[in-house]
Amino acid sequence: MKNYRQIALIGGGFVLLLFTMLLAVSYSSIKPGQAIYISPYAAIDVFIKWLSGASFNITDKIAIFRLQRVFAAAISGMLLAIGGTLYQTTLMNPLVDPYLLGVSAGASLGAVIAYRFHLSGPVWLYAFVFAILSFAFSYVLGRGNRLKIVLSGVVISSLVSAGITLVLIMWNDSLHNILAWLMGSFAMADGKKVLLQSIVLIFVFIVIVSTHRVLDIMLIGDEVAHGVGVNVFVYRLIYLVLASLAAAFVAAFYGIVSFVGLMAPHLARLMVGDKHLSKLLLSMEIGAILLVVGDFLSRGVMYPMEIPIGVFTSVVGGVFFLYLVVRGEWL
């Protein structure tokens, strides 16, 4: 039976994710001796202490700092993978993800504006509104053609990135800070952000898992879905809003993290096919592993300097995108 293979892959992915997370908490740098080593046992111990609210010593506090960061990377990877899968299925376009549609950039601009102009209300709300707006622009400008929507998304993305840079320069931000927004960074992770992201992740996850068969049917085609009684318009709207919400909750806190939403669903699809229940679960794990490993490398390879996570994801993701274009299966 095929099901066992899928369960094994998803289970294996989960174990691998936990393993990479533990490793990333244990070593802050891949150059040994330059940072405090926290054994996996200690990391788990601190996590339990953190959950139960016990008091901490100084090593615990470092461990907590790293835990937050690792969780931020993992949850962001999951959110981006969900966003990518939903965009790809509802737009019937394997070349899109929150980054290529300009949604991530839009959400970052919303967040930057909210931070810099000290607007009232939660930052993520501005990010969400701007995410929806930039999606709407890409969608309307690029309607009718798979490449056109990617092109308009990339153009929207670069326009919005210019906006982000402008706002930050006007307010005398450091170059490092500007880079962190444009290329993404998990250095700003904290407990509150992790909690907010988890709530969104759980909400989005429940909605899509309870309707995963609708996604399967929509993938076969609009007309077929319509014919069997799926309210295509309403479901497409719901999924597009959820995808933008997921992307906004990454970009609002950690800036533009590129290509993860593109790679994770494709890799998952290669392993378990298009059935959305398995594809979504596996792509979430892959997205999380990509970002945990990416964040680990971005902290370590040029220690003590940090490079933005986007440097890592753009190199890997850009090559992956070119591979998809050259192979041309999607045409």
Partner: peptide
């Protein structure tokens, strides 16, 4: 409806 030529060949 039965529109076979417009159905995407999903891996389902």
């Amino acid at each position: 409806v039965l529109f076979p030529d417009r159905a995407y060949a999903a891996s389902v």
